[in-house]
Design a protein around this nucleic acid. Structure first.
Length: 231
DNA sequence: TAGGCCATCTGGTCCT
DNA sequence: AGGACCAGATGGCCTA
């Protein structure tokens, strides 16, 4: 996890241009090592939602179904037996202490537990919703994004979108400015897109795409497909 | 087998 | 008082 934490800051910011690469397991996978092979990345945006939950998810769903709701009376004991058999969630105090508690307190504890379970399920549902809208491989053969990976990828995606939007705004402003210089008279026809005299993408000697984009915005353009082409 | 990820329980704190 | 939120602890499942 330490490697992940080390990635969670500026390093992820630096990947904003390479979001597609991150989703393809290049950026993220490179830092995570074997995690890439486990399906945190892979084929790019698009694809389908997982058709079936992972086996682990099924097991968990069963466990949840067994333990959901508030138990009382004999159900409490059955619940405790199941819980001990699964060996899950014996925090400080543990089941032994719980058994010594008055029945009333135990009932209260169980209802608090159920509420906490519901809360965590809601949180997981929200995370599933987030996974559904961030572009990464959604297929049964690809393992679901972990919680931390989902959050980091979503953050990265937002940053990339914000950058693209900003770049688009600057492009529009630039085009408007160029139009004003080239056609001060209202009757003057608009120059065809990309042919304005001051438009760097076509003006003067042909520059290689990354250079043109860099001249315009300071960085290679995330909107320009040529900038994202592999050499 | 170790490490990563996860669900659950639990007690504490804060808010309404 | 009751609910929401949080963090620590625990143990199961899975993969390399």
């Amino acid at each position: 996890m330490a490697d992940l934490k080390s990635l969670s800051g500026d390093a992820y910011l630096a990947l904003s241009h390479g979001y597609a690469a991150a989703t393809a397991g290049l950026a993220y996978g490179a830092a995570r090592g074997s995690e890439a092979a486990r399906g945190y990345g892979a084929p790019g945006p698009g694809g389908d939602l997982p058709a079936a939950p992972a086996p682990h998810a099924v097991a968990v769903a069963v466990a949840v179904a067994e333990s959901s709701g508030e138990q009382s009376g004999d159900e409490d004991d059955a619940f405790e037996r199941r819980r001990r058999r699964r060996g899950r969630g014996r925090g400080p105090g543990g089941a032994a202490d719980a058994r010594r508690r008055p029945r009333e307190q135990r009932s209260l504890r169980l209802s608090i537990n159920a509420r906490e379970r519901r809360r965590m399920h809601d949180l997981n549902d929200a995370l599933d919703g987030l996974r559904a809208v961030i572009p990464y491989a959604h297929s049964p053969s690809v393992r679901k994004l972990s919680k931390i990976a989902t959050l980091l990828l979503a953050k990265n995606y937002i940053l990339m979108q914000a950058q693209a939007l900003d770049e688009m705004r600057r492009l529009v402003a630039y085009l408007n400015q160029g139009q004003g210089l080239a056609a001060p008279v209202a009757a003057a026809p608009l120059a065809p897109f990309g042919q304005a005299a001051v438009y760097p993408f076509s003006a003067g000697a042909p520059l290689p795409c990354p250079d043109k984009c860099t001249a315009f915005s300071g960085t290679p353009s995330a909107l320009c497909k040529h900038c994202n082409e592999k050499p």
